Amino acid sequence: MPSADRARWGGYGAAVCAAAYGSMKLAQALGANALADKDPLPPHLRERLLARDPFFVAGHWVLAGAAVVGVIVALATVRPWGAVVPRRLLLVIAWTLGTFMVVRSIGGVGFGFVGDALVLTGVRRPPAEHADLARTLAWWDLLLWSPFFLVWGLCWAAAGWRLGRLPGR
């Protein structure tokens, strides 16, 4: 089996991750906690999130909708019906999302393995009044969110890699 065919797991994995993320955001939009209290946000934004501020509720609906689109796009990279979507568009989407998610997981956008490690080792000290919360959220991010975004990003990258290696489509 060609290596590009073995890499089909990337598209399916990206679809599964998008479905899981979208399900969580839909649950939050409908009023469930669904890990909202574990979201690594600054304290003032976290309070708004947990108070169900209309901006955050709307954001959950938007993210749930985006996740549905993500499932469809991810599947379009591996399913025959995806051939109707321009290949270049799928490549740009897969590589862009893959890159963003891997960078997020590492810590290039504020959170991630590096940022969490800096907080947990005391190199980056949060404000004293939020130190315990910051450490708790850093642990959640280190053990749940960063690995999730890393896996999701690698799935998107594998989907893009596979799509780029396929003969003309």
Rank of each mutant, 00 (worst) to 15 (best):
L118C: 02
A4F: 12
G160M: 00
A51C: 08
V73K: 00
Y12R: 15
P167C: 09
T121K: 04
V16Y: 07
H60V: 11
T99E: 05
M24G: 03
F111V: 03
A94E: 02
L137E: 01
D132I: 07
D116C: 02
A51V: 01
W81P: 07
G110D: 07
R124S: 14
A51N: 07
T99W: 01
L90M: 06
R169A: 15
C17R: 03
R52W: 09
G110H: 01
A134T: 10
A20V: 15
G108S: 03
L90C: 06
R87T: 10
T99D: 06
G153R: 02
R8V: 08
R104K: 12
V119W: 03
W152S: 04
V119F: 00
F148E: 02
A36K: 05
G22R: 08
Y21F: 13
G65N: 11
A4D: 14
D141A: 02
L143D: 01
A67E: 00
A117F: 09
A117S: 11
A67S: 08
H44L: 12
W61P: 10
V85R: 02
Y21G: 06
T121W: 03
A76S: 10
R46V: 00
I93L: 15
L63R: 14
W81A: 13
L118F: 10
A18H: 04
G115E: 07
T121I: 05
A19H: 08
L50K: 01
K38C: 10
V62D: 10
K25N: 08
G160K: 05
D53G: 14
L133E: 13
T136H: 11
A20G: 15
A134N: 07
R6H: 14
W152N: 01
G110Q: 10
V92W: 08
H60A: 14
L118H: 11
D141I: 08
V71I: 13
P126S: 11
R8W: 09
H130F: 13
A32T: 07
L89Y: 15
D53N: 13
